[in-house]
Amino acid sequence: MTSLPNANRSGLPVPLIRVAGTPAECGFGYGATAREVIIANLELYLRRFRDAAGLDPATVRRYGLAFRAATATHHPRVAQMLDGVAEGADVPAADLYALNARTELIYGARPDGAAGGCTSVGVLGTHTANGHLLLGQNWDWHPDQREAMVLLATRDERGHSVLTLTEAGMLAKAGLNSAGLGVCVNMLGCDRDALPVLAGERGAGVPYHVLLRAALEAPHLSAALKRVCAGGRNSSINLLLGQAAEAGGELIDLELVPGDAGWLHPVDGMITHANHLETALPVHDVMKQLSGSSLFRSARARRLLRPAAATGRLTERDLAAVFHDHASYPQAICRHVDPADAPAERSETVYSVLLDLDDRRFGLAAGPPCGHRYTWLDLDLVAGRAEGRDQVAAASPNA
């Protein structure tokens, strides 16, 4: 188990945590290494649960236990890892599972309070200059979250490796794995989103962030789709999933709402997504009433990428240029804090991610990305598959 506690010295904007072993061993190593930042993140979210959702710590822990049971039932290896994180960080498991269900707890209480954020893009290798499948996203959230993030690299006892950006104490957000599978994520909101009923038929479903880890634990795209659709949900989520061109090259977008799923296939070699529903699911999209930049960000990203994609010469730099876009500033694809927003509701692009699924390369820029460079990591190197080379590649001026 190794880490880079001084992220700036490595060229990375966040600490890199590397762990190996069984799920429980990986979790324990992660929890022990990142204990201080995990505790800080738990304290941050306990305040948010109180202020945004009116949930006291005892109630939060009751929900955490319910989400723990759902995770153990449907994704036992993920549960073993999360239990290990709690043990390694010496925090209550119920608190840690509540953290991983932060979307459900914050927005289940008031789904109309969901703030639109995040723009995701995927491009098939048939339309890229190097023939590789590319994914990427801007991750928009409260700027206070910037200091409670890590890059988590795991290699399990089967040799399966994962590299993901995540909030400290969680197991995944945007990331890729050694099978050439990658995932990006957008928040959605609909009228079915609600806190679980802790007694009775409507129990806890699988938390939003557990689904992300379950996808990255999959050996191929079909398995990932089965895993993320299983187990029920209390919160809506959009997953943009891709498989490396070398493995056939496929891209699909899943809009998951409680009790249903919709999907999108590439058009002109691309899929883009923001924070409103684009499929005909029989639900009320609460993002419609919130309106805002989500109504144009996905279409604008497609329009900006179309010329390069049409020639089959699209590159990482083209994706980066989209993620720098300022149309409708400050609530743009490259989102900046809007001083008109209440402090608790402020949002900006906290980090930007680029993924080359064929090369198993992960690019990360601090946000807003218009003012930062992407630093690239090689999954095989950071997950311990190779020795004798630098783990972190030089930053590119644009991508």
Rank of each mutant, 00 (worst) to 15 (best):
I271W: 05
L221H: 10
H276D: 06
R227G: 09
L216E: 07
T279Q: 13
L195W: 01
L240N: 08
L254H: 02
L281Y: 10
H209Q: 15
M187A: 14
T279R: 06
A230D: 15
G259C: 11
L225C: 13
S222W: 02
H273K: 10
R213Y: 04
H265M: 14
D260V: 08
L251H: 05
P282F: 05
A215C: 07
G249T: 12
A218K: 09
L241K: 03
V228G: 08
P266R: 06
L188W: 02
C190N: 04
H273L: 00
R227E: 13
G248N: 08
C190Y: 02
I237Q: 07
D191M: 11
G259A: 06
L181Y: 01
L181N: 01
L211A: 06
S235L: 15
N275L: 03
G205T: 14
L251W: 09
R227V: 08
D260T: 09
A245Y: 09
L211D: 03
P282H: 00
H265D: 12
V228D: 06
A280L: 03
R213W: 06
I237S: 01
S222H: 13
R192E: 12
S235P: 00
S235N: 10
E255L: 07
V183A: 05
R202V: 12
N234T: 04
L198G: 02
V185L: 09
R192G: 12
A230P: 10
V185F: 01
H276S: 05
E250I: 10
L254C: 10
L277Q: 00
A218Q: 02
H220E: 13
D260P: 01
L264A: 08
L239Y: 03
G203E: 12
A204I: 14
L251D: 07
K226Q: 15
G242I: 11
P266I: 02
H273G: 03
L181R: 03
V257R: 02
G205L: 14
P196S: 08
L221P: 05
